[in-house]
Write a protein that binds this DNA or RNA. Structure first.
Length: 811
DNA sequence: CTGAGACGGGG
DNA sequence: GGGTACGTCTCAG
């Protein structure tokens, strides 16, 4: 018997003689890859009874069907809707039988319902054994010969034990592929892969078929590229494979190419290929024993809010956001990849550089993102593979689930389809309160906001599925805003875990303050507190999420009702008790200044904040956020601010979308910056007028006007003829090969009729024929008008139709 | 305003 | 595989 301590990377199971064997994959303290099997774990679920346990047990064990086999029934006590309740714990022979068994059991006399019959076997194991993915586990067992590609294989004896402590260094590699496709997005059925690049901590390689710089390893053919990748993963003993949008692109591509080349692709620690799954819009690609993590999910889910709508979620944009410039993505025009590939040696080297950089940039991003993902997986106790692909709601749910198990509470079922749909159909309830802004420019504005408003409301008022309108407090508990009451005797699971999350976060932030900025421990703690913040902020949404196990729509609407009450209350305190001027407020924040907009707001604000906090219940708190020297409020949710450090805070104004021309985007940016930095409306106005004049005078380039959009499907599949579709049709008639993925660049030309009828291809566009009126009225003016209107300038003035008060400048 | 349909990332 | 499913925006009616 040997003992091993390893970091739990992944968990799955294998059927051996009709029984499930748990497999844990990881890396030991000593840096060896390991698989640990456990043959002793049995699948089960709970049945809620309304008849005597013994009678039901007898019936269950007697039942003989080919679909499932009930091997054991035990009597257990669990908390069910806050009350201790008796359940039958029903064991089946293997996990796949649970689905059949649960329905049959539910149909039996004496059984009311089943519970916890929809939890994946590996996750069940983690929950029951109280393990945490991405932390250390100690096991004892017998070594055995495994066909898996691991250093150590152990068949476990006894129980696994979760341990505190650092995890060993994991072998992480990033990869990226390039394909040869003369037109449009590469199609794996037709277009070969020409190179694959990998980057780990100490290796950087491109596998391809042509000679190139030192980092290129030349192979015979495309199949050789696949084999070289497999060899790399095996030799470097890779634990985590990361890439960008690889669930949707690279992995399916590799899979299809391998199939066409009649090559059995083996990227995992066993002989199986890539396990591709597609559920609706979401795809996943897994390989046994290694974690394939697509960083795009992290960007798309976790960073969504942080990046805002302006920033695209392309690798280039994300790299630009997180990496220093010199580390950034090399950019080549990928429409030209085929030309670089077939071109001169210099062209080919450029392509190799590009391919290599893509893998390196991805690796650098994974160095930042993966440790964050580790902390998330650990906190919610879901294997990294799933945690990295999981939405906010599911993360909260996972956290509730392990807490329910720890507290011996029954986990509520997920809603069935009809219930889900019914929830989706219910009318939306009133959301947050937004204070109508005082439009225009303001100076010396202080911003205060509630620390975790919704979580603290849920905690303070004990809002939960199990506590809302409870029988035990009927008539006794006071109804809160929104008209419901919440149990005064028993705490609900959601308030309990939220309190726990907020307290943990405070602790970690204290600890963080003691650490040296940038140290390993600092980064780890910072990632943990970030993950806790994500969880806390997602809790409210989860209450009203239609797929939620702990759904309580009325609970969620009570949260917003209380939120409205609190924010209105502080607006009133600012006005009535401190004679301040609230200029804007949204949900949990308030922008205030003094009546004369003086710097005195700084001192008065301190007193205001203290007064508010004295009145708030325990965990609730109003915090000082920032002081702005100037700001322009345009409308609800649309404003731009600048603080003393000259940092800009722009919200809602970036309705610069991809169908906007560069000249419109640039004009909007310049205008806002000028307004905030100089506080000079006239100057901003001049900028707009100058651009309008440039357009009128024809002083622009095609690139100023061009909008680029990709075709997302075959041309004939478009039902609506958008401008880029119309242009694609023209290009096709001209003999060009336009297909899915082809980027269409177009400019709007002058003339009559629909915009789409006047859209012309960028290439060969006669700059003299652009539609001046369109670019002024539908591009420039809309981009700046909302801001300028808030400052008292109408569209007519902007366009110069009316010689308003600025005629002196342009007269 | 409401409902249906497009779209994201990837080369 | 004990999981069946996203959120946001635009445009037509």
């Amino acid at each position: 018997m040997t003992e091993h301590t390893f970091c739990l990377l992944d968990i799955d199971y294998e059927l051996v003689n009709g029984k499930a064997v748990i497999r844990m994959f990881g890396r030991t303290k000593q840096g060896k890859s390991i698989v640990v099997t456990d043959k002793s774990f049995e699948p089960y679920f709970y049945a809620l009874l309304d008849d005597g346990f013994d009678a039901v047990k007898k019936k269950l064990l007697e039942k003989k069907t080919p679909d499932y086999e009930i091997v054991k029934v035990e009597k257990v006590k669990k908390l069910f809707k806050t009350k201790e309740t008796e359940f039958a714990k029903v064991y089946t022979k293997n996990p796949m039988q649970v689905r059949e068994a649960r329905e049959a059991v539910k149909r039996m006399d004496g059984v009311k319902d089943y519970f916890e019959a929809d939890i994946l076997f590996g996750r069940r194991y983690i929950l029951d054994k109280k393990l945490e993915p991405m932390t250390m586990v100690k096991v004892k067992g017998i070594p055995f010969d495994s066909p898996l590609k691991v250093d150590i294989a152990i068949d476990m004896n006894g129980e696994p034990e979760a341990l505190e402590g650092e995890i060993p260094k994991l072998n992480v590699a990033s990869f990226d592929i390039e394909a040869y496709s003369p037109k449009g997005l590469p199609q794996p059925e037709n277009d070969p892969m020409i190179m694959l690049s990998v980057a780990s901590d100490d290796k950087k390689k491109v596998f391809s078929t042509k000679e190139g710089p030192g980092f290129v390893k030349v192979v015979k053919d495309e199949k050789g590229i696949l084999e070289e990748f497999e060899k790399f993963l095996e030799k470097e003993d890779i634990d985590v494979i990361t890439a960008y949008n690889s669930d949707n692109f690279d992995m399916p591509y590799l899979s299809t190419r391998a199939k066409l080349l009649k090559h059995k692709i083996k990227l995992g620690r066993d002989e199986r290929g890539i396990n591709l799954k597609s559920k609706g819009r979401y795809h996943s690609a897994g390989v046994t024993g290694r974690e394939h993590i697509d960083l795009f999910h992290y960007v798309n889910i976790i960073l969504r809010g942080a990046l805002g709508q302006v920033n695209k979620r392309t690798l280039k944009s994300v790299a630009g956001h997180f990496l220093k410039e010199e580390e950034g993505k090399k950019d080549i025009d990928w429409k030209q990849i085929d030309k670089y590939w077939k071109g001169s040696k210099k062209d080919l080297d450029t392509l190799y550089e590009y391919s290599m950089t893509d893998a390196v940039v991805t690796k650098k991003l994974s160095d930042i993102f993966m440790p964050r993902e580790y902390e998330i997986a650990k906190l919610v106790r879901v294997p990294l593979f799933d945690a990295s692909r999981t939405t906010y709601g599911q993360l909260v749910e996972a956290y509730l689930m392990w807490n329910a198990v720890e507290r011996n509470e029954v986990i509520p079922n997920r809603p069935v389809d009809e219930e889900r749909e019914a929830r989706a159909r219910t009318e939306a309830f009133e959301g947050a309160f937004v204070l109508e802004p005082e439009k225009g420019m303001h100076e010396n504005v202080a911003l205060f906001d509630f620390r975790s408003l919704y979580p603290t409301i849920i905690i303070s008022h004990n809002i939960d599925q199990s506590t809302i309108d409870c029988d035990c407090c009927k008539g006794k508990a006071k109804k809160v805003a929104g008209g419901h009451w919440f149990c005064q005797k028993k705490k609900g699971l959601m308030p309990i875990i939220l309190k726990d999350i907020l307290e943990k976060r405070v602790e970690i932030k204290k600890e963080l303050a003691k650490q040296k900025k940038g140290s390993d421990e600092y980064v780890r703690l910072n990632n943990t507190q970030y993950a806790l913040k994500i969880l806390a902020n997602s809790a409210y949404g989860y209450l009203a999420y239609r797929g939620s196990r702990w759904y309580t729509r009325d609970g969620a609407s009570s949260v917003t009702a209380l939120g409205r009450e609190y924010i209105k209350k502080i607006v009133s305190i600012a006005e009535k008790e401190f004679d301040l001027k609230p200029v804007y407020g949204d949900t949990d924040s308030i922008f205030i200044t003094t009546k004369d907009e003086s710097p005195k707001i700084k001192e008065i604000g301190v007193k205001f904040q203290k007064k508010v906090n004295d009145e708030l219940p325990g965990v609730m708190e109003l915090e000082f956020e920032d002081l702005f020297k100037r700001g322009v409020f345009v409308a609800k949710k649309r404003y731009a601010m600048i603080n003393d450090k000259d940092e800009l805070k722009i919200k809602g104004l970036e309705f610069v979308r991809r169908d906007w021309s560069p000249i419109a985007k640039e004009t909007q940016r310049k205008t806002i910056e000028t307004l905030l930095k100089d506080g000079d409306v006239e100057k901003a106005f001049k900028i707009v007028r100058a651009v309008v004049k440039r357009i009128t005078d024809g002083d622009v380039t095609v690139e100023d006007l061009a909008v680029y959009t990709d075709l997302s499907r075959p041309l004939e599949k478009y039902l609506v003829t958008a401008p880029h579709v119309a242009v694609a049709k023209i290009m096709k008639r001209n003999g060009e090969d336009v297909r899915t993925g082809t980027t269409i660049g177009y400019v709007i030309s002058e003339g009559g009729g629909l915009v789409s009828e006047r859209a012309k291809p960028v290439e060969g566009f006669n700059i003299k024929t652009y539609d001046k009126k369109y670019y002024i009225e539908h591009q420039i003016i809309p981009a700046v008008s909302r801001v300028m209107e808030a400052l008292g300038y109408g569209e007519d003035e902007l366009m110069g139709k009316k010689q308003g008060k600025l005629s002196e400048y342009f007269g």
